[in-house]
Design a protein around this nucleic acid. Structure first.
Lengths: 196, 196
DNA sequence: TAAAAAAAACATAATAGTCGGTATGTTTAA
DNA sequence: TTAAACATACCGACTATTATGTTTTTTTTA
């Protein structure tokens, strides 16, 4: 792996563990085995690094996951379940085999959303991406005559998305209940409601 | 107002605006019109201050809101709608008339949850408190023969809570859609599902 | 009830340490 | 020979905190 990627990956791991502001450039340097000069050759600032890291390891991953599930063969219900569990579930760091706890990732994301306009923009874009995905799945299900047509699919998609996103936050608040259980239970109820 | 309360209120405002770590003691001192000695007379450290502020201005407020809505006369549906809108909606700083944007409050809360075990504990407790409230409302509705009985009320309450909490996060992600609209739409769908 | 003592409520000054960032030097590859 | 890819040394600004001094209020005592 080249130096820049190494810096980004090690920083990402540190950010997840301690949060952005609580990781100093010294720590980043040590973890990446590089000196100050080396770091500033690749990045203009610590902030630039954070934005790059979040774009690469979070949003790229999120959006490519949605893309994959779009091509995924399965029932609409399976697709809905899979997309969110893929994102939330056992995220994996590229190349290495380390698993990431989504909860810490979410907290890092919130930190970025608060501090940087560009991350906030990416965040919004991702949710529109997810919303469109859910709506397409619903439209597909309606075409297959599985899903009710009396409610506008965008509104239904919004309802479903809200519930799925809530699952994440509840997982942070009440971690003792496994995410899979909560997700399965929620999707089952949603499914009862949206199917004919 | 006494000095300690003044420090806490001014700090809370600063924390909401910039986040905890980005507010220095110097800023707190200036805003509260106090010196270093004065500050450290009332608080052991900056961290102690944050915990005190979050306990007082967030969790006290949250939990007392739930208590109020418990006594609130109204239909189960109104109660559900009111409790979350009261918490999320136009929160108000004690004494002063300044309105708080819940989104910034949520981000501050996440910062605290990440950094301090005690805040994380309060956070979990609050969500159990909310869950119990929702379940009681549902049980009440079932007793009035409004709400279906074929699903366990705890599971139904969990489903509803997840959706409500998701509403908050969606509001952060997609702020252009007003929280009231989203909440009303979601509650209507939930209601269709849980009523007989 | 006035003086004395004690405690509370601050104010001032200083400190050690860390922070992100810069300027410049050196090595390596094209 | 030139530019990329680093390394070294350094810096001023700022950080939370401490130690100590001063003022104000409360309590105790004569």
């Amino acid at each position: 792996m080249d130096t820049k990627s190494r810096i980004m990956e090690e920083s990402f791991k540190l950010f997840l563990k301690k949060g952005f502001v609580d990781v100093s450039l010294n720590e980043i340097r040590k973890a990446s085995n590089i000196t100050t000069g080396g770091f500033y050759y690749h990045f203009d600032s610590k902030d630039t690094l954070l934005v790059a890291v979040i774009e690469k390891y979070i949003f790229n991953y999120f959006n490519s996951t949605i893309r994959q599930i779009r091509d995924f063969e399965g029932t609409p219900k399976e697709k809905l379940k899979t997309v969110i569990l893929s994102i939330i579930g056992e995220t994996q760091l590229s190349e290495s085999s380390e698993k990431i706890d989504y909860r810490t990732l979410h907290l890092l994301l919130m930190e970025g959303v608060k501090k940087y306009e560009i991350i906030s923009k990416h965040y919004t874009e991702f949710y529109y991406n997810l919303l469109n995905f859910i709506r397409d799945v619903l439209d597909d299900g309606a075409a297959q005559d599985i899903i009710r047509r009396d409610i506008d699919s965008t509104e239904l998609a919004t309802f479903i998305q809200t519930s799925m996103v809530g699952t994440v936050l509840m997982w942070i608040a009440m971690p003792e209940m496994p995410i899979e259980n909560r997700m399965n239970s929620n999707i089952d109820h949603l499914w009862n409601y949206i199917t004919k």
